[in-house]
């Protein structure tokens, strides 16, 4: 009998590297589910989300973190959110759909995105080379997010701590995305 055991491989092999003033690593243990708010029933859907996860649904361009830090809601558009959460199983979308009981439309996005965490005192200087968004601390508060493009790649950037940012980009171009971020860091380090 042949071994038909199927294993998941992280997009960037659990990349992790320290640079002068910056740390960069792949975050591979998050699940990600998108939520679409049904037309005309947005407020009902928002109430359901808040009830299910105990997190107030943030405004567009912001994220909100659960008290235990295990789940973050990203408000990407008027009718679209992402739920980013720690989850062991492979059924992350049914898990979320179950909790929301039809109040939203949900789609698994866990494998659509590669996630990098960039942190350290020089992180912002490195991002200045590729990110058109104003990341000045007063312009881009902690938990604020933006969906933009960096080096021709669509990217979601979330500020999670004073000097820490999550960067999410398409998984198929993970290598190019890592190269873009690494180059930025090396160019300022």
């Amino acid at each position: 009998m042949v071994d038909l055991n199927l294993k998941a491989e992280p997009f960037l092999g659990h990349y992790s590297k320290g640079f002068k003033g910056v740390d960069l690593r792949e975050i591979d243990d998050n699940s990600l589910v998108s939520l679409a708010l049904p037309l005309g029933e947005e407020s009902k859907a928002i109430k359901a989300i808040e009830a299910a996860f105990g997190i107030p649904v943030p405004d567009v361009g912001h994220s909100a973190l659960a008290k235990n830090g295990a789940m973050r809601l990203l408000r990407l558009g008027r009718d679209q959110l992402f739920v980013v959460f720690l989850y062991e199983g492979m059924d992350s979308e049914p898990y979320i759909a179950d909790k929301l009981a039809g109040a939203v439309y949900s789609t698994d996005q866990s494998h659509v995105w590669v996630t990098l965490e960039i942190s350290g005192p020089s992180a912002r200087a490195a991002l200045e080379r590729i990110c058109p968004i104003d990341l000045n601390p007063d312009a881009f508060a902690i938990h604020q997010l933006a969906r933009t493009n960096m080096e021709h790649l669509g990217t979601i950037i979330i500020r999670t701590a004073p000097d820490t940012y999550l960067l999410m980009s398409a998984s198929s171009s993970a290598g190019s995305f890592l190269h873009a971020v690494e180059t930025s860091i090396e160019n300022v380090a």
């Binding site: 049904p38 037309l39 005309g40 679209q80 996005q109 198929s172």
Partner: peptide, 11 residues
Amino acid sequence: LDVHLISTTDG
């Protein structure tokens, strides 16, 4: 129309 789109090409 109540309809929502999201790309899953890479997923």
